[in-house]
Each structure stands twice: as structure tokens, then as C-alpha cells.
């Protein structure tokens, strides 16, 4: 174990003790039936430009290099499996979206929007996470907004020559938190209280989910850093092959 890894571990222990982390659920997927038709359609429409852009990016990658098709499919499967994998003694049956943050850092946010969309369809049908009518809203928060923020944060940190691990941590954590802010706003827009503003409603949704989501976001950030470190250790050629250059 390197020094940094040790430090991160120590921090995570302290953190776990402080918050007695035991998040058992994912509260990020908006469930089937929670959005009225107008909202379902509206969120779907908002996703269209991103998804179309992502589709063209992927199609370009594949026409340039046919071999990429299995790599992309594996990446999609990887995101799905990582999000469904249980971490014994940390979570119960939670579906964490570590995969998309990691995917955004490794493959870029456009690619992840398509892969994320497919993963969300599978999750809705196979795992009862999210739903088909709320697909648009979930794609926007989890496959577009979150990865986009992760990617942007990571890029900015890289520009500022910030410590690489810090950058990965911030990217994953902020991406996660942002996903969850978007989810709150989406719910708040739908269930706006009489006399209350969207913002106050959003704050309410944010409030009820905070106890599970904030620690989860931090854990997610830590995990992503550790995964990246593990990758650096023994997957350098593979990282190079997918075009992820080593920075600083």
C-alpha cells in the first residue's frame, strides 16, 4: 500500500465512524410512475441533443476503429456490473453510480451518455432501479449531468495541475452530488408545494435524501480514487490503449 492509499484509508475510517455510514439504498433513481406525462416527455426531450451527440461520437469512434465496438460494450457492461456489485460490510443492496464517474474520466462524457442510457434501461427492466417512464429524467441526471460535471471537474483539476488523486476524488464526488441535486430539482419541479418555490421544495427533497447521499458521495469519490490507483498500478497498457494518457 502506498502512502497516499494509507492516508485515504485512514480518512475513510474516520469518516465512516463520524457518520456511521451504512447506506442501504440508492435513492437516486427516480422510480417508475413518479413523474406525470408532461415531465416524462420534457426530460426525454432535454436528453435528446446529448444522446444524439453521444451517438455520433460513438459512431465516429467505431467507424474509425471497428475494434472499439467490443471495448465500448465491455465498458457499458462494466458500468452496469460495478454499480450493481455489493460491497460487503459497506452497503446492503445499493446501486451506486461509481461506474459513470469513472467512465466519464476514462472515456469522456459523451460516450458515457449513451452507455449510461443503455445501463439505465437494463437497470429499470432487470433490477427495478428507476423506471421506463422516468428514463428521460434519470438519463439526464445520471448519464448526462453527473458525468458531465465529473468530466469538467476532472479537466479543470488537470488544468490547474492539482494532485491527480484529488482531482479524481472531486470529480467523482461532485458528479455524484450533482446527480443528486438534479434529481431533487426534478422531483421538486413535479411536486411543488402550494405557495412554496421550486427552490424550497428542492431543498426539502435534498434534505430527506442527504443522510444517505452525502456519505455515499464521499465513499464513491474515495472508491473511484482507489480504483484509479489500482488501474495505474497494473493496467497502464490498457489505459493507454483506450486513449487515456497519463497526466503530470
Amino acid at each position: 500500500m502506498t502512502k497516499t492509499q494509507k492516508r485515504i484509508l485512514k480518512f475513510s475510517i474516520a469518516f465512516a465512524l463520524a457518520f456511521s455510514v451504512c447506506p442501504t439504498v440508492s435513492a437516486m433513481h427516480i422510480m417508475e410512475g413518479y413523474l406525470p406525462p408532461a415531465f416524462c416527455i420534457a426530460w426525454g426531450v432535454i436528453c435528446v441533443p446529448f444522446v444524439v451527440k453521444g451517438f455520433y461520437v460513438i459512431r465516429k469512434i467505431i467507424t474509425e476503429n471497428r475494434k472499439a465496438v467490443t471495448v465500448l460494450a465491455m465498458a457499458g457492461a462494466y458500468i452496469f456490473v460495478i454499480s450493481a456489485l455489493k460491497i460487503p460490510s459497506v452497503t446492503g443492496s445499493c446501486s451506486h453510480m461509481t461506474g459513470t464517474g469513472l467512465g466519464a474520466i476514462l472515456f469522456g462524457s459523451c460516450t458515457v451518455s449513451i452507455l449510461g442510457m443503455i445501463v439505465l434501461i437494463f437497470q429499470a427492466i432487470l433490477l427495478a432501479h428507476g423506471g421506463l417512464t422516468t428514463l428521460g429524467a434519470n438519463i439526464f441526471s445520471m448519464a448526462i449531468a453527473g458525468p458531465f460535471v465529473s468530466y469538467a471537474v476532472y479537466a479543470i483539476c488537470k488544468k490547474c495541475r492539482m494532485n491527480r488523486n484529488m482531482g479524481v476524488f472531486l470529480a467523482a464526488m461532485l458528479g455524484d452530488l450533482f446527480t443528486y441535486c438534479v434529481t431533487s430539482v426534478q422531483l421538486a419541479l413535479t411536486y411543488q408545494k402550494e405557495g412554496g418555490s421550486v427552490l424550497s421544495s428542492a431543498a426539502e427533497f435534498f434534505g430527506v435524501f442527504v443522510p444517505t447521499q452525502l456519505p455515499l458521495a464521499v465513499v464513491e469519490g474515495l472508491l473511484t480514487v482507489m480504483i484509479m490507483m489500482a488501474l495505474e498500478n497494473y493496467a497502464k497498457p490498457e489505459l493507454k490503449a483506450i486513449g487515456f494518457e497519463k497526466s503530470v
Binding site: M1, I13, I87, L223, I227, A230
Partner: peptide, 13 residues
């Protein structure tokens, strides 16, 4: 908890 996280990260990697 600590070992779990580390193991998970290694497996994910």
C-alpha cells in the same frame, strides 16, 4: 469497512 473498500477498489480495478 476499511478492508472492504480497499478490496472493492482492487476488484473493480
Amino acid at each position: 469497512f476499511r478492508k472492504s473498500l480497499r478490496t472493492f477498489a482492487l476488484i473493480a480495478g
